[in-house]
Design a protein around this nucleic acid. Structure first.
Lengths: 351, 351
DNA sequence: CAGTACTATGGGAGCGCTCCCACGAGTGAT
DNA sequence: ATCACTCGTGGGAGCGCTCCCATAGTACTG
């Protein structure tokens, strides 16, 4: 067994001190060069860089983390079972954006699933140990305790999809209100007069905003808002079927449906078909998300696209800013930021 | 700005020393309790545990990593672009197995993509900094330099799918040879006499083993091995189409096809259909992987199932053993292990 | 030319832990 | 009673880095 004292002495990885000796400078100077401090002369910097290259020096992350009290890592926390993570392109798109934005950073990204109770337990431990400098939270439900835990531990965090209008965490969201408006506006422009809406889960803030957008778009078009045309869904296909059936029963005269998700639209479509309604001739259909389903549905579904990859980038931006602001612990920076990214209506043949 | 010395003094996270004071014992004793050493009396252990609970003590990972020269983290390296990772169930199944096996461990799993050159560069840096205790390598191509890098850095690693019979890294694989044998044996048993094989990429060791299995199964059945019935593929659908077309041209009398992957089988199926061959009446078809495609093909595809989740578990087992063996750096443990897990033939209507 | 202000640099102290040595108390053999 | 162990324990040293202070050198001011 290697004795403790001798560990890494000969043949081990070079240390700052060894680089310093080699370059003929002090430890502090090497540290400054490594960390890109401007307070180093050109000549010294060159000498140090040469020594670093010759020795193949790579900083010891653990030592740095201990001394500087930071980890240079952030976690992307997915409070869902892995299954959903892989099933929904939402996550992979987001991950791509996050990865891209992190590419020219020293930050390491950790992917953490917290679907089961056990996993959540572990996560809590993990966060309590401050093993990350910041957290990205995606797909959080209204009653999730995670955001509070984060706040209590004073860990910088950014949430995708605020939980309410007064979200206390920094957040990034797409413009649900505007997206819904443009979808409904599009239907109005196409001459539809009885436009129904199948909502998402009502405790999801974004679903609320979509309802608001739906209503305001109708009002702006001078159409009366008939609450009988609004039916509650839950983002699922089954929910779409159920809601559509209810709507058809209550308002057989409807000539358009705006669904809060593509999957919901798919469910609605099935019921419409079975009821003998042609899409789009009898009933126009618009979904939300512009997922793969939208493109592959028959007929291809008009849908509202969210810039998910861009949202990922924006989340990283916010998070890195928060982390940087917190380092000099004095001034609690400006109020948490809330970024809202524009959506885009993708018109296809279903409307 | 908080002065360096004062950092974390008041209100900060409790340290070992503080726990020790609270419990009325020494630092070393607390460390022993935390790390589950048996050399602590029951009474002392209880006192320490109480103090830990009261103070909400959580060990500082960075300090531990620095002192003990380990990270308690392992990386799952995917040398593919993220896109493939999400597209293929192989990875999510493997991840599930890995996660499950790691669940009651202190080890943290990192997911690292190394698809682009840039990402590989980063990974190399990462490994050079020894930021993980071990590496899990999935889906490695024959000429990949990664395994050598790992060996050179002396980082414990386990590979899924050895690169050759003489793989130097510890490996976990499914029984490609046996799987192929059972597929072909099944066709023989069904009375097929002219069984063709569309191979995988020939520089993949597993593909070689499947060819071996194909040949031996025929030999065992007393059938002559006709090399004209073997056509090279590449695991893709397009490759399957091309190979099938070539086979039909060369051996119009074939009555069965064993494809090296489900996707390849799907390509072959299409060409067979276009040639007017009925499946399975005229030509029986068997694939490999038992992926979602197999179930959804028309007709449902007989396929060889690999226990991917279990492979993930086995990889972790091997890796943890390697890491443990290496800690007392003296005795370089036994030769690298190679685990081979059994496959299972899932018979459906295509054969 | 003294006085002031900056810049570049070296190195002490300390981050929170693990490892290991030393030590006292108990146990059993002689 | 003595010697040899063993067991449980305390605490020094050290892991490799960052932070900051002190210092020496340089440049600019009046």
């Amino acid at each position: 067994m290697a004795s403790h004292g001798a560990r890494g002495r000969s043949g081990g990885r070079p240390t700052l001190e060894e680089v310093a000796a080699r370059a003929g400078v002090g430890r502090g100077t090497v540290s400054r060069v490594i960390n890109g401090s401007p307070r180093v002369s050109e000549a010294t910097r060159a000498a140090v860089e040469a020594a670093v290259a010759e020795l193949g020096y790579v900083p010891n992350t653990a030592a740095r983390a201990l001394a500087a009290n930071r980890t240079d890592a952030i976690a992307l926390v997915v409070p869902e079972p892995e299954t959903r993570f892989f099933a929904e392109p939402y996550f992979s798109d987001m991950l791509r954006g996050v990865g891209a934005e992190l590419a020219d950073t020293e930050m390491q990204l950790l992917l953490i699933f917290a679907g089961s109770d056990r996993e959540r337990q572990r996560l809590a431990q993990y966060l309590a140990a401050h093993r990350v400098d910041g957290v990205l939270l995606v797909s959080v439900h209204a009653d999730d305790p995670l955001p509070d835990l984060l706040a209590q531990l004073e860990i910088p965090a950014v949430i995708s999809g605020p939980r309410s209008a007064g979200e206390s965490l920094a957040s990034v969201d797409s413009d649900n209100y505007g997206g819904a408006r443009s979808a409904v506006g599009h239907l109005v422009a196409r001459g539809r007069r009885r436009i129904a809406h199948i909502t998402g889960l009502l405790d999801v803030y974004g679903a609320q905003r979509r309802i608001d957008g739906y209503r305001d778009a109708l009002r702006d078009a001078g159409q009366e808002v008939d609450e009988a045309l609004v039916e509650e869904g839950d983002f699922t296909e089954e929910g779409g079927r159920r809601a559509m059936a209810a709507l058809l029963e209550r308002c057989p005269g409807l000539d358009a449906v705006f669904a809060a998700s593509d999957v919901t639209a798919a469910g609605a479509r099935q019921v419409l078909r079975e009821a003998g309604r042609r899409i789009p001739q009898d009933v126009a259909l618009v979904g939300y998300d512009d997922s793969a389903i939208a493109r592959h549905l028959d007929p291809p579904l008009t849908s509202v696209r969210q810039p998910i990859e861009e949202m990922g980038r924006a989340m990283i931006d916010l998070l890195l800013t928060e982390i940087a602001d917190r380092r000099p612990a004095a001034s609690r920076g400006p109020a948490r930021q809330h970024v809202v990214l524009p959506t885009e209506l993708v018109a296809r043949t279903s409307s």
